[in-house]
Structure formats: C-alpha cells, structure tokens
Amino acid sequence: MFPEKEIVTIWLNQQGYLVVRDINAGKNKVVDCLAFKLEKGQLKKAIHVEVSVSVAGEHVAEVQKKFSDALVQKAIRQYLAKYSQTKDYSKLLVMNSPSLEKIGDIEVKPFEAVFIEVLAKLDRKDYSNPTVRTLQLLKHTILTEPEQLRALMEGFKQNGAISNQTLEAMLEQLSHLPEMMRVLAKSRNKRVLEESFKGSPLAKPEALAKLVISSLTTRSFNQFLKELFQHEKAKRFTKKKSPKQKTLQVFLD
C-alpha cells in the first residue's frame, strides 16, 4: 500500500465510508479505492476513488482512463451489486496541486487538502497502522511543538527545500489568521513585535511616518505626538531649537 493511498483511505474512513482497496478488474487493471456508505445493509452512497500523487510529475491522463475503462466499471458494479441493485456511483480523483476542480464527471480533490484534514482530526490514541502512527508523530511531536517546528523550518531552509520567497508567503498566510492577530496583540508578545519591527523596513523614519499617519485616527495621532514629545530624546531635540521657533508640541497643548 502506497502511503498516499493509505492517507486517502484514512480520510474516507473519517467521513464514515467503508473502503475496499485494490479491486482486481482483470488484465492488470486495479481499482484504487471503492468507498461506500451503508444504511440498514443497503447501499447509500458509493465513490470510485483513484489516487495520483507524485513529487516528480503528474500522470493524470493515465489515471483518467481508469474511470472510463469498461473492465474497471464492470468490477465496481459487480461489487456494489452485493448491496444494491442501483449500482450508481460517483467518481473522485485525488491528486496533488490540481488546476481543475472537475474533469468531466470526475470530481478532483487536492491531496494537500486531504492530508491536512487527516492531520487535523488525528487524536493521541494508539494505532497499529504505520501510516497513522507516522502522522501522529509528525503532528504531536513536530508540528505542534514550536521549537521543533522552527528546527524543521531551519532544516528545510538549509537543504533548499524552501526559499525565502516561500517563507514570506507562509508569514503572509499566517497573518490572515484571526487567531494570529489576537496572539500578537497580547502584551507578553510585545518583545516579538519589537524585535521584528527593529529588523524590518518599517524601522526607517520615512516608512514609520507613513505607517503612523495612515494607521491612526486624528485623535490617536495627536496623542501619539504628545507621547513622542514627552520622551527624553524628543526633549533633547527640542532644546536645540532656536527660541524663536515654535515646536509642534505648542499646537497640541
């Protein structure tokens, strides 16, 4: 059993489907998965599932042919005949990074989405299935542990698995999470924001000025200026001004 097929099987099981794998259709043709739901012993829903996941390239055309192959269709209907006279079923292709949501009457599901759903639902129970156990270890010892996750990202970076552009895209995606904004807003994370700010382009005076002006209301902006001019650095700066010159603080009082 290929790991990707095992993961798809787990995903189908999580949705309440019974799954039969590798049905022999004859002449070296095999049905990857036949998923079905029963209600009081009768067939409620059935799906012919094919899995095409590759890090080297896609083989969609070859897999697509399996859905319309006469021997494959016959094998599926013969199996479904055990539970129903209808023998109708839908078709699902699971593949990585698909460009289409549907190919004819075949629904297309991204493997990445399947993988994420499986990981999200995995608990801490003991499982004998090697694939499930591996996913558990990945989730509970790496992905949910900040230090280990950082080490993983560093390893990826050193080995060229991810680029700076990818890291930037990851940060942008994280910034869209409402939970992330709430976490950053907490006072205990002030240091993280300060360190990030100091090393960012926003630390430049021109950029900072534009950010402050565009982000604050008039009332908040006035309060910001008052706080700014009360700072020791600002006081030293204003003392150097000529007595004839009025500082901005005068207009704020």
Score class of each variant (00 low, 15 high):
residue 200 S to F: 02
residue 14 Q to V: 03
residue 94 V to T: 03
residue 149 L to A: 10
residue 128 S to L: 08
residue 143 L to F: 03
residue 251 F to V: 13
residue 144 T to L: 15
residue 168 E to G: 07
residue 212 V to A: 05
residue 101 E to P: 10
residue 192 V to D: 12
residue 207 A to P: 02
residue 79 Y to Q: 01
residue 166 T to N: 15
residue 214 S to V: 05
residue 81 A to N: 05
residue 64 Q to C: 10
residue 214 S to E: 09
residue 57 G to A: 10
residue 180 M to H: 05
residue 9 T to V: 05
residue 194 E to F: 10
residue 40 K to F: 09
residue 135 L to T: 04
residue 145 E to W: 00
residue 89 Y to W: 05
residue 142 I to M: 13
residue 162 I to H: 03
residue 241 K to N: 11
residue 158 Q to S: 11
residue 217 T to L: 05
residue 78 Q to D: 06
residue 127 Y to Q: 04
residue 121 K to L: 13
residue 169 A to E: 12
residue 156 F to H: 04
residue 248 L to C: 06
residue 151 A to V: 08
residue 98 P to W: 10
residue 13 N to T: 00
residue 170 M to K: 05
residue 23 I to L: 07
residue 16 G to K: 02
residue 163 S to P: 08
residue 103 I to D: 04
residue 219 R to I: 15
residue 238 T to I: 09
residue 131 T to M: 04
residue 59 H to V: 12
residue 68 S to D: 13
residue 228 L to Y: 03
residue 192 V to W: 08
residue 87 K to W: 06
residue 43 L to Q: 03
residue 221 F to T: 08
residue 94 V to P: 00
residue 223 Q to C: 07
residue 91 K to G: 06
residue 135 L to D: 01
residue 220 S to F: 01
residue 95 M to P: 01
residue 73 Q to L: 08
residue 238 T to P: 04
residue 143 L to R: 01
residue 11 W to P: 03
residue 132 V to W: 02
residue 56 A to L: 14
residue 215 S to K: 10
residue 112 E to L: 11
residue 109 K to S: 09
residue 141 T to Q: 12
residue 163 S to M: 09
residue 242 S to V: 07
residue 132 V to Y: 03
residue 45 K to V: 11
residue 157 K to C: 00
residue 245 Q to M: 10
residue 57 G to R: 12
residue 253 D to E: 13
residue 178 P to I: 04
residue 137 L to K: 13
residue 144 T to F: 12
residue 224 F to K: 01
residue 15 Q to R: 08
residue 120 A to P: 03
residue 37 K to G: 05
residue 224 F to C: 02
residue 199 G to E: 05
residue 177 L to K: 15
residue 26 G to Q: 09
residue 211 L to S: 02
residue 138 L to K: 05
residue 73 Q to W: 00
residue 195 E to N: 08
residue 194 E to N: 06
residue 2 F to D: 13
residue 139 K to V: 01
residue 183 V to R: 11
residue 177 L to W: 11
residue 185 A to H: 09
residue 204 K to H: 11
residue 151 A to D: 14
residue 168 E to S: 13
residue 46 A to K: 07
residue 157 K to E: 10
residue 105 D to I: 02
residue 150 R to E: 12
residue 204 K to E: 13
residue 214 S to R: 12
residue 15 Q to L: 11
residue 221 F to C: 07
residue 227 E to R: 13
residue 45 K to T: 11
residue 231 H to A: 15
residue 191 R to T: 12
residue 213 I to Q: 07
residue 196 S to T: 12
residue 234 A to V: 04
residue 98 P to F: 08
residue 31 V to I: 06
residue 19 V to I: 00
